[in-house]
């Protein structure tokens, strides 16, 4: 097997995640699709790291994970506060800047 297949898999997962962001309306599921896209990028970075024979790609994937963790914390807090004010987790209902 050619290790480039990992890149194809990453591209496929990224595409599925992007399509999910466009299709779904539940804010939590949209957020999960964003996580899927981040994970696909990480897979591509790790595959590139192996391809080039140095560890920089893994470092960047590691930083991506840290940023993803911070992003999840803030994003879920925003979803929870949105749900409190609008009693809905749908992204269609959050169409105004303030209630």
């Amino acid at each position: 097997m050619n290790p480039v297949n990992y890149l194809y898999l990453a591209a496929l997962l990224f595409t599925i995640g992007a399509t999910g962001v466009l299709i779904r309306r539940n804010a939590i599921v949209v957020f999960m699709c964003i996580e899927l896209m981040l994970n696909a990028c990480n897979l591509a970075l790790v595959a590139f790291s192996r391809m080039h024979g140095n560890l920089d790609g893994q470092i960047i994937a590691f930083f991506t994970m840290v940023v993803a963790a911070a992003e999840v914390v803030v994003g879920l807090a925003i979803i929870v506060s949105l749900f409190r004010s609008r009693h809905s987790a749908s992204v269609d209902d959050a169409s105004l800047m303030k209630l």
């Binding site: 539940n26 939590i28 999960m32 993803a68 963790a69 999840v72 749908s90």
Partner: peptide, 23 residues
């Protein structure tokens, strides 16, 4: 990811998404 982030997701789903059906 599977230990912290996904459990955080499940936590919020239980808090928020249980009653919120996706239209």
């Amino acid at each position: 990811y599977t230990g912290a982030i996904m459990m955080l997701f499940l936590f919020v789903v239980m808090l928020v998404g249980v009653t919120a059906a996706d239209s």
